[in-house]
Write a protein that binds this DNA or RNA. Structure first.
Lengths: 198, 198
DNA sequence: TTGACACCAGAACGATCGTTCTGTAGCTTA
DNA sequence: TAAGCTACAGAACGATCGTTCTGGTGTCAA
């Protein structure tokens, strides 16, 4: 009995495509794919693409352009458990395929970075000099860490509510709660944090 | 005198393209770009692409396919002082541009990511679930935060010395100092930290 | 030995691609 | 007020796209 009626494609095909994508950040055309894979028939490329699509590695834009699928960037970071011997995560898995950028940024046009000044949020693990990844939006929920504009300067604080008015709470007992007069100007909500230590 | 002879394109064009790319991970065709930008002439799309290419935001593959350029993934870094009025970061200058990856990664081939488990480094602002950017190297200096391999697991600790032997010190009094028997296996040195909070 | 199937080559074909050309409305400068 | 430039629109055109069809291997089970 032939149980497997259609084995998965040569994994090398996917790897070559991932390498190409890592270099150029785009999916090539069928004819380029053909030479990339060492195939000389576009019909077969078409079939391979169909199967990668079925497996979730490729997908289509609404405009019927080929694009990476959900599983295309499947990666693992360095594993938390280490196999015998000194592991080489760079070779063991394709951790490099996803950029840190993608990890932190969902909407590039609404995202910017703000450098942290002072220790007022130290208990939230936010240090002086860290970069806060901010999603710009004019409002936020209580409990969010927000970047607000107070006295023409950016300030990073917890958003909270006191007697019906919004207040900004530091994560450091040595700093006072900020109770803005009038409207509280919110620049955006913290979506992430980046720290360089060397 | 006409000093500016060709002003930069509407920044909204680039933002829309970046958002499209963030969603689909490909650069669309000219006709899709036209509808994305609200333009109905491919000739003008072609000209805009030419200028983005000139500015380093777009580029071409060897096969003459459009791809993101070197500056495509730059992020805005908002300055700590805000100019009068509600700032519009997209238009105001006073924004440096950096890519998060470049900011954190100096040697891609020697850099990997390790996810933090537990609270043993909480006093150093390192929380559970954070990603540590690690520069792989077999040795380190006292005072460095290192990623070591203990009992076949990654662990993040301060490197210190006690009676001539290297020890690993947590940044949390609830955790004990680790005194490895025999050789201490260092995976690398912490070069940065990445945290996603939403 | 004969299907049956997987894997691939090659060519045909309409659709879509990006380039290029002409034209025009609005603004600026001399 | 004429000239010049920018920012588009629209159409024409050859090149390239991806689809589809026919056909040829090689392998393996019946």
């Amino acid at each position: 009995m032939a149980l497997k009626q259609q084995q998965p494609l040569d994994p090398a095909y996917l790897e070559k495509l991932q390498d190409y994508y890592a270099e150029h950040k785009v999916i090539p055309s069928y004819s380029v794919l053909a030479s990339l894979w060492g195939i000389s028939a576009k019909s077969w490329v078409s079939e391979c693409v169909r199967r990668f699509e079925e497996a979730g590695y490729l997908d289509w834009t609404p405009d019927r352009q080929l694009k990476p699928g959900a599983r295309f960037f499947e990666r693992r970071l360095a594993h938390d458990t280490v196999q015998a011997g000194l592991p080489n995560p760079a070779l063991a898995d394709g951790y490099d395929l996803v950029t840190i950028d993608d990890y932190l940024v969902r909407v590039p046009s609404k995202t910017s970075l703000v450098r942290v000044k002072g220790d007022s949020m130290i208990d939230a693990g936010i240090h002086e000099g860290d970069l806060i990844v901010v999603e710009q939006q004019p409002n936020a929920n209580v409990g969010d860490i927000v970047v607000a504009i107070v006295d023409n300067e950016f300030t990073v604080k917890y958003l909270d509510r006191e007697k019906g008015a919004f207040v900004l709470k530091p994560a450091n007992k040595a700093f006072p709660v900020i109770r803005p007069k009038g409207r509280l100007e919110i620049f955006g909500v913290m979506a992430g944090l980046v720290r360089r230590t060397r």
